[in-house]
Nucleic acid binder design. Structure first.
Ligand SMILES: [Zn+2]
Ligand SMILES: [Zn+2]
Ligand SMILES: [Zn+2]
Ligand SMILES: [Zn+2]
Lengths: 135, 135
DNA sequence: TTATAAATGTTATATTATTACATAGTGTTA
DNA sequence: TAACACTATGTAATAATATAACATTTATAA
């Protein structure tokens, strides 16, 4: 994995990089105030600094928000550099979250039309169940 | 629409009924504190009274939570009396929310298996776009 | 350089949700 | 009925999540 075009297009600012690094190396989704606590030693002192970086990172698709958990996870799915079509599985016991990367699912949802014939290019899907370990 | 078996099984308590009625007659999803404000004249004074009723109503499938909006909408889809498999379309301009009732979609998602072969009976899907009026 | 947009720093505040504990109602069974 | 379990309610306090407002600085580009 070299430096792709899209990486260069969105070189991160200092705060964005600090916060992305933290989320990226975390094995689990992180909440905003957990992030705040963990980056205070790096000089990020206020909630707003965290939320601004999170907003930007979500916007450019480097991270995603898990809406049902108010938590953030790094994107490891090269096909969703734009944060508009996401799917996750969430374990209801251990709270493990995995981004789902399925061409079939993406295609089905991208082509889905509602009763009015409306198509939606943007969606968020969260599946809930028990992970391997918790079953 | 007579009184169905399932309606009887979950006869609502006073607070639950007050809060359900408000949500049910609302043309748009309601937030918890909007609900609180609107039911104070009926004697419901504290946030917890609202959240407890909301939790129960979600649990029995009378309402759904729109996770990306922290708001609640009544279920008008007889097929999802259990609050475990939901899909919505959300207009990003006027915030109109519609519950999607599509046998095809439900079937596809209920049968979807991830890379580990895991099936999920519970999910929440939120589509985003522009509604008819806002297009 | 000058203008513009993006990002930062800081304080205060708004919004959303839960903990803890006491009390009251409801339905079931001995 | 009386005892019990279960559900729901009332109330106060607080925790957790997120944004408004304003001043300043840094990066980008014409
Ligand atoms: Zn992704
Ligand atoms: Zn698990
Ligand atoms: Zn429904
Ligand atoms: Zn609209």
């Amino acid at each position: 994995m070299g430096i792709s075009k899209i990486d260069k297009m969105h070189s991160l600012s200092k705060n964005q990089q600090i916060i992305f690094d933290l989320i990226d190396k975390s094995p689990e989704p992180l909440k905003a105030y957990t992030i705040l606590f963990n980056v205070q030693k790096k000089g990020i002192k206020a909630p707003l600094q965290v939320y601004r970086a999170l907003d930007k990172l979500v916007e450019i698709g480097k991270i995603h928000k898990i809406e049902s958990r108010n938590a953030f996870i790094a994107c490891h799915n090269s096909s969703c550099q734009v944060a508009k079509a996401t799917a996750f599985s969430i374990c209801e016991i251990c709270e493990k979250v995995t981004e789902i990367s399925s061409a079939g699912l993406s295609k089905y949802l991208a082509n889905f039309k509602d009763k009015d014939g409306m198509k939606y290019s943007k969606y968020n899907l969260e599946f809930f169940g028990l992970c391997k370990k918790c079953r």
